[in-house]
Design a binder for these strands. Structure first.
Length: 511
RNA sequence: GGCAGGGUAGCUCAGGUGGUUAGAGCACGGCACUCAUAAUGCCGGGGUCGUGGGUUCGAGUCCCACCCCUGCUACCA
């Protein structure tokens, strides 16, 4: 399959879905942010000029209602949530370059400009029509089928739903079905993984309807151009954040647009893979190169969303073993493709087994042997040991996997090298070399182990940037792991650094 | 209902176009080692490959039926 995003190797504009501000962040939000951050960090390692965007979706009826329930103004409500979200993402080590909020002026400007641009190019693609639906007087909004049970609103089963019509502005989505379909089919616009691509394709093939893009009676939104009585429907509004963050419509936005990758949840592919590209085509703008739709975090096999999400708070999940451990768990156990289960037991197992006994212990034993047997200076030497050879193969396979956003497979390659490094320790038995005063043998073995640990550290850095950074320092390497480039992974620095022993990176809880 | 994906060791999963004793990691049992966070390495036990038929010299791998799970099925985001 062609990968057009690699046509521009230097620049990489990466986004996550903007989070909906109707409640506190949970593990599901965290998976997406951490996964995208892992990709962003990997891309920097690859040498791309990464621009990483995250943000908040702050309009809509639900936000208005949530703020009313809390007894505060909508603005105060979203201000607070924006802070809560950014604090969590900072604690989890997210390296986003920008944080956009749909209540910002730069966003409203872009929404208005995009609508104007569509109307200019295709005057009949934005038009007025009647929207009819079932209106709940309790919620003061139209209800979708999924929100209706036995002919009544789920929230207000005692009230009658009122069939209502209102004039809405519509977008002629149907006109763009074939162009969007074609761009997905020919690989110009990638929808990944394949299961999501198939879903989107079948949706497109089964036909589309024009969509309503405005709402009356909803003050909490962006005013619809030339129609002060209506606001822009929240989804039409929200998608444009990716473009707004490039500075659109101001000159210079083309330096960032199009996005190279939109990371989203599997539930919102039709907005990102059908409606959004249609909007862009109508406005004569380039499509993003790719959308990656990840799965969900589940709890005991069922959805962990707003309702069930209270089972595990993000706060407690971070507190268990620290932010790096949670990042690692989400990416390793849950993965970035299928759904996965969160359980405390699995979190503990991954932590103890892979981080403490695996990576942490390897770092600990390598640094200790360098300290004890060769005076704490990393030996220089020729990278021709079996461990170096294994490293070459693992690094190459890691790169292939990570290039395709298969971060789960990337992690597997990294673990393959950890395993081989531990074997290498047993094979060379440096403690015996030391007894035999075989300094050449010690240099050769410990030099190879230092190079392997350097490679492992760089490969694991996108997953656990904090702890990997500590090991980088422990190896006495120049600069930081975050600034290191691919060359350091292919040909790790050949020694000379002064090691520094570390306190255990992943202490085991005493129990 | 329709479309799509899946049901393989206790757990999480690998197993292109059918072919020697079905694999990995974790968990479990034994042995070895001591540099390391009682860590690591080696060996081993453990599976009627959802069910029932069929094609074939031979099927986890193809065909049919059935059971179960998951996702999508268009304006909650």
């Amino acid at each position: 399959m062609p990968r057009p995003r690699n046509q521009v190797p230097d620049r990489f504009f990466l986004t996550t879905a903007i989070d909906y501000s109707n409640g506190d962040p949970h593990l599901g939000h965290a998976l997406e942010k951490v996964g995208a951050d892992c990709i962003a960090r990997y891309r920097r390692l690859r040498g791309n000029d990464v621009h990483f965007l995250m943000g908040m979706d702050e309009h809509s009826q639900s936000v208005l209602q949530a703020s009313a329930n809390a007894g505060v103004t909508p603005q105060a409500w979203v201000d607070r949530l924006s802070t809560v979200f950014t604090d969590f993402w900072k604690r989890l080590g997210c390296s986003n370059d920008d944080w956009i909020r749909t209540t910002e002026p730069r966003h409203a400007r872009a929404v208005t400009a995009l609508l104007e641009r569509i109307k200019e190019r295709h005057p009949d693609h934005v038009f007025l029509a009647e929207y009819s639906g079932l209106y709940c007087t309790g919620c003061e909004e139209f209800k979708a089928d999924a929100q209706i049970k036995d002919g009544h609103c789920i929230e207000h089963p005692t009230l009658e739903l009122v069939p209502t019509k209102e004039p809405n502005h519509y977008f002629r989505l149907t006109a763009w079905r074939d162009p969007v379909l074609q761009k997905i089919e020919n690989g110009e616009f990638l929808v990944e993984p394949a299961i999501r691509r198939n879903e989107v394709l079948s949706l497109l093939r089964s036909g589309l309807q024009d969509i309503s893009i405005s709402r009356v009676r909803l003050p909490w939104g962006i005013p619809f151009p030339d129609d002060p009585g209506q606001t822009v429907y929240v989804w039409f509004d929200a998608l444009i954040n990716y473009l707004a963050a490039t500075g659109f419509p101001e000159a210079g936005y083309e330096k960032r647009w199009p996005a190279d990758l939109h990371v989203v949840g599997k539930g919102i592919t039709r907005f990102h893979c059908i409606i959004w590209p249609a909007m862009l085509l109508a406005a004569g703008l380039d499509l993003p190169r790719a959308v990656w739709a990840h799965g969900y975090v589940q709890w005991e096999g069922s959805k962990m969303s707003k309702t069930a999400g209270t089972a595990v708070s993000l706060e407690s999940a971070i507190a268990r073993h620290g932010p790096d451990a949670l990042r690692y768990f989400l990416l390793r156990e849950i993965g970035f493709e299928n759904d996965g289960n969160f359980t405390w037991e699995r979190l503990d197992v991954r932590y103890t087994d892979e981080l403490a006994n695996g990576y942490g212990n390897l770092a600990s034993r390598v640094l200790a042997m360098i300290e004890r047997y060769v005076g704490g200076i990393v030996p220089t030497g020729v990278a021709d040991t079996p461990l170096d050879q294994e490293g070459n193969a693992r690094v190459a396979a890691y790169g292939n996997a990570m290039d395709g956003n298969l971060i789960h497979e990337g992690a597997q390659e990294m673990w393959g090298l950890v395993s081989r490094a531990n074997q290498f320790v047993e094979e060379t038995a440096p403690w015996n070399l030391a007894k035999a005063k075989d300094t050449a043998g010690l240099d050769r073995a410990l030099g190879a182990l230092a190079r392997a640990l350097t490679r492992i550290t760089l490969m694991i850095h996108p997953f656990i940037p904090g702890k990997a950074g500590e090991v980088w320092g422990g190896l006495g390497l120049p600069g930081t792991a975050a600034d290191a480039k691919w060359g350091a992974l292919e040909n790790p620095p050949t020694g000379g650094g002064k090691v520094r022993k570390l306190t255990p990176l992943f202490p085991k809880p005493v129990s």
